[in-house]
Design a protein around this nucleic acid. Sequence first.
DNA 1: ATTGCCTTGTGTCGCACATACACTATCATC
DNA 2: GATGATAGTGTATGTGCGACACAAGGCAAT
Lengths: 258, 258
Amino acid sequence: MADTNNLVEAAAAATIRVGVDVVVFTIRDDALHVLLAPAGSDWSLPSDLIRTDETVDATARRALAHVAGSGDVWLEQLYTFGDVHRVPTTRVVSVAHYALVSADVLTATGSRAARWWPLATLPRLVLDHRRIIDYALTRLRNKLAYTTVGFQLLPARFTLSELQRVYEVILGRDLDKRNFRRKLEQLGIVKPTREQRVAGSGRPAQLYRFVATEAPEAIGAPEPAIAAQPVVQLARISPVLRRRGRAVPTVPATEGRR
Amino acid sequence: MADTNNLVEAAAAATIRVGVDVVVFTIRDDALHVLLAPAGSDWSLPSDLIRTDETVDATARRALAHVAGSGDVWLEQLYTFGDVHRVPTTRVVSVAHYALVSADVLTATGSRAARWWPLATLPRLVLDHRRIIDYALTRLRNKLAYTTVGFQLLPARFTLSELQRVYEVILGRDLDKRNFRRKLEQLGIVKPTREQRVAGSGRPAQLYRFVATEAPEAIGAPEPAIAAQPVVQLARISPVLRRRGRAVPTVPATEGRR
DNA sequence: ATTGCCTTGTGTCGCACATACACTATCATC
DNA sequence: GATGATAGTGTATGTGCGACACAAGGCAAT
């Protein structure tokens, strides 16, 4: 039975599975949350195995649609985790992704028992999922600083204060309102809409919408399949500290230069 | 024959192979080169299939050692290419990497028929390898601008002019000698050695060595398995153009602001 | 209608830093 | 010792980042 032999051979050579894990971020109550699915007593990232007739990207979107409602969400490949024993039983290489969804989409959390967990108090996680989340977070921070991904966490229309809050929450530091708005205006990536209001308490706020720039420099790749982002710096990851008060009047800089 | 059935089942479920491609960069004759292996009438990136008992990273290093001599080279994961038909015959998902080797290591190009090709005149490439190289290049450019990877392309001791040349070649633009050196000194990432000389023609140059900073901010990930790089900006990808001559004396900036 | 409360929205100044720019120093070669 | 070639060095200028405080516009309670 040559046929069977071929199959046996194939099975022996290809005992590696390829999976996909997706870290889904959103912002709720001024805090970053990730979407987790129950897995026994622990929790797990939305994940799935790649089918032979399916792009890696497609698998990620499928895994995402399982738990969150579908709709178009921003999704990017993160890293491929290929440790030998990351799954104890079999060999599974995982192509990790991360996704950003707006807080209004998230309420329509698709069916399953998935829950949003604040990053500060994550439950016990399956396998190496904790590590994946950690990495996704640092990547998100970096990307936030020099691209416009931040807008993906907001609905189509938003106030500038909401936008600023997104940045503050993710970067973990406060931003100056006036500097933030100046930067936005200078970049020209938001446009005011006619609508106002939203909040209940104070002065009504202007609603803005995101205006994509034509990406003078694409980061990522020329290929459309690889997410490309315009390079803009909306905020630094960590601010350049400005020494206040009696700053040494540029003294030993010239001399100390050697 | 339950045994055979299981195997057949396994073979059907796991017909996805996982490969690794490595884009090896070096600098020769003031130009970026990549290492390619002959593949029929076309050329191919160094690549290999992942073994079940082997980390993805280990596979990359193995593929690298095949063609280039081993030794420790800087290697980073790039992207996982998972199109269904990227390999016509079977389904192979490729975890692409890129590596930087110094020009002196490269002369000891390990055994095989691999050759260095200047990026400007690449030969016909197998599969989607051209696309992988393109992506690796944009990633290298970006990474060069805000990390210290550039040093990986040089031997342990180098002159500042050599270092500057690396940056110029990769960024594709000239840098100002004085500004470049001032920035280096200010960052404190190079230290002069006792040795001098190298060249044959002009004034002998001081030799420097790279001094790693303690990475106040790591980019990449907290996990050691994922390459972490200190954040330093040695040069911008594209310079901020300075309008020369009769610059409008800050006039409509205030008024034109809205 | 007035008051208090809460959030939005706006301008300036100082400093650090990126950019532009030109000449001297030191070696080898002829 | 003249020529050629590369190494090495300082200054002036504009701009963007960061720090900082108060008036405006709604709602709600009185």
